[in-house]
Write a protein that binds this DNA or RNA. Structure first.
Length: 267
DNA sequence: AGTATAACCTGTCTGC
DNA sequence: TGCAGACAGGTTATAC
């Protein structure tokens, strides 16, 4: 479900609503969620601890409880809310009567417990690549990643290379840059690479400002929809006329994922 | 090494 | 109406 803008939107709301509060209870209802720690271990290490920060790395949310941190990935259908939900996968209770519930229809989400100071060098964060809005995201580093025959769209989805983008924003960034998604990455000129580099941050920034894209299940913490779905120009628009040239948008499959693009604008 | 496919899950939509 | 099949915002194990 969520890509970088959706996770960042949630992070900001979580930091505002729960930052500084103490965890008073914790219950796991979906054991499959847990990757490296039992419910008992989580309760032992976290209950009574203060949530000192809510951070984000790519599409991962990191709840920093000081000594330990919980790392959550929402995958396709995970969503967090301060309202009660049916069949929650976990519930965290905080001081001040704040209850955080997690729902996940497809049960694909993951949760890790890690020592806070080691988080960035342990799974699941260890292998992540450069990330938009971070100091490592420079045009030089970006261009260096393109020295491969791999299709550019597929490269954009490879979290070990560029972390945080998903299917929607990869399609939108390529459209904004007028680059064909099947181009070998190394075939991009320096000007094209620079254009894509800039448009990735541009699109993500706009999407964060719009509180993310609600296509199906994603909602902000309050339960409301994001609004960037109103600004998508190619994603999920197969057959509709391109906003620039009126040519019908085409859908193809790359690596098992749908890719949407304008066959005339994107070369 | 890099890449393609299947697998993990469940809900929804489309076409016959 | 029923049902099979495709598809969904993501990652990862396995098979070439």
């Amino acid at each position: 479900m969520p890509e970088l803008p959706e996770v960042e939107t949630l992070r900001r709301a979580l930091a505002r609503e729960l930052g500084g509060r103490t965890l008073t209870a914790l219950k796991i209802y979906e054991p499959r969620l847990l990757q490296n720690a039992s419910e008992r271990k989580l309760q032992k290490e976290l209950i009574g601890r203060r949530l000192c920060a809510v951070k984000r790395r790519a599409k991962f949310l990191l709840f920093d409880f000081g000594k330990h941190a919980v790392i959550l990935h929402l995958r396709m259908t995970g969503w967090l809310t301060l309202h009660p939900v049916e069949n929650p996968r976990f519930v965290f209770e905080f001081s001040g009567k704040k209850t955080l519930s997690f729902h996940d229809t497809r049960r694909l989400a993951t949760l890790h417990l890690v020592p806070s100071t080691q988080a960035h060098k342990l799974p699941p964060l260890a292998e992540l690549g450069i990330e938009p809005f971070q100091p490592s995201y420079t045009v030089e580093n970006f261009v260096a990643l393109l020295q491969t025959e791999q299709e550019i769209k597929r490269l954009l989805l490879d979290q070990r290379k560029i972390a945080g983008m998903g299917n929607i924003y990869a399609c939108e960034a390529l459209f904004a840059s007028t680059i064909h998604p099947q181009r070998p990455a190394m075939s991009l000129s320096h000007a094209e690479a620079r254009r894509l580099f800039v448009q990735i941050e541009n699109i993500l920034k706009q999407a964060i400002a719009a509180q993310g894209t609600s296509v199906k299940t994603y909602r902000v913490l309050t339960g409301e929809s994001g609004s960037f779905q109103n600004f998508l120009r190619v994603y999920d628009r197969a057959g509709e006329p391109c906003v620039r040239c009126r040519t019908p948008i085409v859908r193809i499959t790359q690596g098992g994922r749908g890719t949407y693009f304008c066959p005339r604008c994107q070369r």
